[in-house]
Design a protein around this nucleic acid. Structure first.
Length: 653
RNA sequence: GCCGGCGUAGCUCAGUGGUAGAGCAGCUGAUUCGUAAUCAGCAGGUCGUCCGUUCAACCCGGAUCGCCGGCUCCA
């Protein structure tokens, strides 16, 4: 029998007979390794433990601590799910069942939609199959035979998949889970060796999906689940989900009196007093950032004649997302869904010189988008919102500098909120307007700006808008979730559509380029992110109520009122709790409202002209002169100190 | 928009084919208190809305609105 040489990760070689399985290599290294083994990597390719070595190869054994292991186990869990579903229900067709970032799902065509009780039954069946430690076996089927098999079993979707994915192949790869009813699925694998390796999994939810994600196709039922390599990790994940629930901005928004919704204004928030304070604080902060950076603020109309939207191109491409209204003359009007067309008119309202550029127009007025009812969700997806929008009109040669300035702004703003972020550059898509040379130049300038500012970025090839390349930013919140917020988009088309021009140094007319840019994205969505990021415990500079004065008894009211006035005079947002309640009760309420500072005042404080400072985070800090407190608090506001609630702490109480 | 689930007091939730409850919040009174809930009393809902079945509907059926989870889309 011929021998093959196996090279292990430590560089050592060993000769084994050709036909040796990866599993046997693991066994020969150590029984413990064999027991932990989930798969192998042969010459860089992930394979089953049953994979047979026919030639010299570099072999690595994949154990649970390998980066590929998680995906592998989730993929196998998806198969286990499909096996359970086909065993429990008749007339089921399987679609696809991939691993995802958070777990896995599998789509099925079923006679009736799943209900929550079905999930329990399916999960129980999965546990049963897992406990039987059934083998995942890879089988190579002749292609036509496989197609005939799936066709005969009433699974046309699988036949379609085989047709699309294995054109020109003679054999296709299938996996079985041999139960009393053998489950067979078309799949390239690899998989864990047996179902017994899957211990830490949980089904989460069912939902509707469509074959290939296209609503014109057959509706299917999707079952979501998650799986981990250890119970500990699964528990940690579920705890993380719980933590996210506690931080849910919809819940905190109500509890903290920030905003509310009413069914008569779906997708439009009512900002309550506390929320309005927060909103305004963010709006003014943005002005504070943008004005020194050379921006001017404008306000443009909310309703425009259809001609505006026809000129911008939105009438033909975006009309179904706009709220349309009619004037008394029967004139068709549309509520603005974005500011750019209005800003084009501002630019064109007077003669512009190259000396005026860059011209940076900032606007915070509300926008309306008639979003599909099913997509509305809290503050993250609404029909009325405002952006921290701006359009920078620049010359072709100013792009790089302007983008570099923008990158600096993004860094500064996210830094002030304690948010980390990543950037991605999206380049020319397959369908684009304009000429390639202009695109290349624009992309080169964006890259140069990114490099000059030291901003790390990834490239999304071909993901740019049809009118220009862009840089998008994802922020990561305190519990690790990513949100797309800021964007910087180059646009050559809009200025052209509006016939914009500026007079150059050469006394000739030139076309300006516009940079659409936003840092928050929208106030609504950004506030939602901040609420969840801070778990409702806003840093002092953002807290709607910064200080609560708590008198111990009625006789302390006058002193408390004087404390309040002095704190108020220092431009801090302060309230006085003058209810006839015990101090513990008032403290509890202020604590639940996540108010950063409580000032307790009683006989001792009156005698010493002090306040007893209590922080929401650290409890009683002892007494100090009011002026000392005010000075420190003002300093904390000015520095915009960030005070994050760690994700492992109970965020709600 | 599509699929599924849900809609009972301000909030969190019980509940039954014979016109509804609890806790918290609210109000009133008493209590004047030192760092996360003082006590007592009172009040509060045409059970999302409309239509139907029924002697009788919060409960059954249909429609509609909204919310939630997904799909698609997106700031």
């Amino acid at each position: 029998m011929s021998q093959v040489t196996v090279t292990l990760p430590d560089g050592s070689n060993r000769a084994v007979p050709a036909g040796t399985a990866v599993r046997d290599i693991a066994e020969s290294i150590s029984p413990r390794l064999a027991k932990a083994a989930l798969a192998g990597i042969v010459d860089g390719r992930l394979v089953d433990l049953a994979f047979v070595l026919e030639q010299d190869a570099a072999v690595r054994i994949v154990t649970p601590d390998h980066p590929e292991a998680l995906k592998l186990c989730r993929h196998s869990a998806a198969h286990l799910l499909a096996a359970a579903v086909t065993s429990l229900f008749s007339g089921v067709q399987c679609g696809i069942g991939p691993p995802t970032d958070e777990g896995f799902f599998y789509d099925f065509v079923v006679p009736r939609p799943f209900v929550p009780e079905d999930l329990d039954a399916i999960e129980a069946k999965m546990r049963e199959l897992a406990s039987e430690d059934l083998v995942y076996e890879r089988q190579m089927w002749p292609r036509e035979e496989a197609k005939a098999f799936f066709a005969g079993r009433g699974e046309p979707l699988k036949v379609q998949l085989i047709d699309e994915k294995t054109e020109g192949q003679h054999e296709v790869s299938c996996y079985t889970i041999k139960d009393k009813d053998t489950f067979i699925d078309f799949c390239v694998g690899p998989h864990v060796p047996t179902t017994g390796k899957l211990k830490a999994f949980k089904l989460l939810t069912t939902s509707n999906a469509y074959w290939k994600g296209d609503a014109r196709n057959q509706p299917m039922q999707r079952v979501y689940g998650t799986a981990f390599l250890s119970d500990k990790e699964l528990k940690a994940y579920l705890a993380q989900v719980e933590e996210a629930k506690k931080r849910d901005h919809r819940k905190l928004g109500r509890e903290l009196g920030l905003f509310t919704f009413h069914q008569w204004a779906p997708g439009a928030a009512f900002w309550l007093d506390n929320g309005t304070t927060l909103y305004n604080t963010l709006a003014n902060y943005m002005r504070e950032v943008l004005f020194p950076a050379g921006y001017v603020e404008v306000k443009t109309p909310l309703v425009f004649n259809k001609d505006l939207w026809e000129t911008s191109g939105h009438w033909s491409h975006y009309r179904e997302n706009m709220f349309l209204v009619e004037s008394t003359d029967g004139e068709a009007m549309g509520m603005k869904a974005m500011n750019c067309p209005g800003h084009m008119l501002v630019f064109g309202s007077t003669v512009r010189s190259y000396r005026d550029l860059p011209l940076r127009l900032h606007e915070q007025t509300p926008l309306h988008r008639n979003e599909a009812s099913g997509v509305l969700s809290g503050l993250t997806r609404v029909r009325q919102f405002s952006q921290d929008d701006a359009h920078c009109f620049v010359t072709q040669g100013q792009i790089e500098d302007e983008v570099e300035r923008l990158l600096g702004l993004v860094q500064r703003v996210y830094g002030d909120f304690g948010l980390s972020y990543t950037a991605k550059l999206s380049t020319r898509p397959a369908e684009f307007l304009g000429d390639v040379a202009t695109w290349d130049s624009a992309e080169a300038q964006l890259k140069a700006a990114l490099q000059r500012s030291g901003q790390a970025y990834t490239i999304n090839e071909g993901d740019g808008a049809f009118y220009g390349p862009k840089i998008d930013f994802d922020v990561t919140d305190a519990i690790g979730r990513k949100w797309q917020c800021a964007t910087i988009q180059l646009d050559y088309q809009m200025p052209q559509r509006f016939g914009l021009k500026y007079v150059g140094a050469d006394n000739a007319e030139h076309l300006p380029i516009v940079i659409h840019r936003a840092i928050y994205g929208s106030f609504e969505r950004f506030i939602a992110i901040l609420i969840e990021h801070y778990a409702g415990a806003f840093p002092l500079w953002l807290a709607p109520v910064q200080v609560m004065v708590l008198p111990i008894a009625d006789r302390h009211l006058a002193y408390a009122a004087s404390v309040r006035s002095q704190v108020q005079a220092a431009s801090l947002r302060v309230q006085l709790d003058e209810r006839q309640e015990k101090i513990g009760y008032k403290i509890r309420e202020a604590q639940l409202q996540k108010i950063p500072y409580m000032l307790v005042v009683g006989d001792r404080e009156i005698a010493d002209a002090t306040v007893a400072v209590r922080t929401r985070k650290g409890g009683d800090q002892g007494s100090k002169p009011l002026a000392d407190f005010v000075g420190a608090a003002r300093g904390e506001v000015a520095s915009r100190a960030v005070d994050l609630v760690p994700s492992h702490e109970n965020a709600s109480v």
